[in-house]
Amino acid sequence: MKHTIEMNVNGEAWAVDVAPGETLLEVLREKVGVKSPKIGCERGDCGSCTVLYDGKSVRACLVLAVEAEGHEITTLEGISHDGLTVLQEKMVELSSFQCGFCAPGIVLSVHELLQERPDPSADEVKEAISGNLCRCTGYDPIVDAVLEAARIGPGDRG
């Protein structure tokens, strides 16, 4: 019942044997070795497994691995090929995280937002991360960092 899928993960071509029931999250973590998408609930509630699927954020626990066939998957490890994005930099600088477990998903959700809306309002930022649960920060510090990153703009770092 194994099926070989070809997909692009963070700019690299991968061919991976997957079982029909396997999720993209399991395959990324166990067969590709990309560990930033986290396992938090395995039912689409928490957003800690958020990845970009052809640039759109999805919950990797709700995507079957076979659905990734021929698609581009981007995780936190792949959003910048030149150091940190401005967003990551601001989140580090402003200590806008705590345990860090939700951070990869949040960075990806915001990354997607900033591609579409480079100058979002606070409400738009809250909307964009409303599917990413964070139990530590109270969210405000994250929103502040995003607005600060947006104010500076991506420059040439994408």
Binding site: I39, M91, G100, V107
Partner: peptide
Amino acid sequence: KGTPRIDGLDKLTGAAEYVDD
């Protein structure tokens, strides 16, 4: 002082390793 956290790079780059990782 509001010294930036020393675990920032770990946690914002995905380098931070949790047990399941």
